[in-house]
């Protein structure tokens, strides 16, 4: 499968990064290569194989519904340059 320039553009937008034309070019090239190699990999019929999404097979765990301390407000906001005494600020959002 061929990857197009615009696909790279869309993916960059979805990752919320802006690439230079040179970067798009290079990424296109690299993607094409690795995906080609992957296509070779796919010659093995993998459809009947279960996918592994996790680092191991140990089942997940559960936690009791017990309240623990939240972060003090000062610490919550400490790493943000765009906050008032309670809230973080983002550029104005007008939805309706």
């Amino acid at each position: 499968m061929k990857i197009s320039n615009s696909e790279i553009g869309n993916a960059a937008w979805d990752a919320r990064v802006k690439l230079t034309p040179g970067e798009v070019e290079h990424l296109l090239d690299c993607s094409q290569k690795i995906l080609q190699e992957l296509n070779l990999v796919q010659k093995d019929n993998l459809d009947s194989i279960k996918a592994t999404f996790f680092g191991h097979e140990q089942p997940g765990s559960l936690r009791e519904d017990i309240i623990t301390d939240s972060l003090p407000l000062a610490k919550v906001l400490a790493n943000s340059l765009y906050a008032d005494e309670f809230c973080f600020h983002v550029p104005k959002i007008i939805e309706e």
């Binding site: 990752a15 992957l38 093995d44 993998l46 194989i49």
Partner: peptide
Amino acid sequence: TFGALVSSGKHYEDYFLKSQRM
């Protein structure tokens, strides 16, 4: 961006899922 590409609706099956099967 490459990560967004291989997990996109269009390529999820072919790239992401196949890699997980591999």
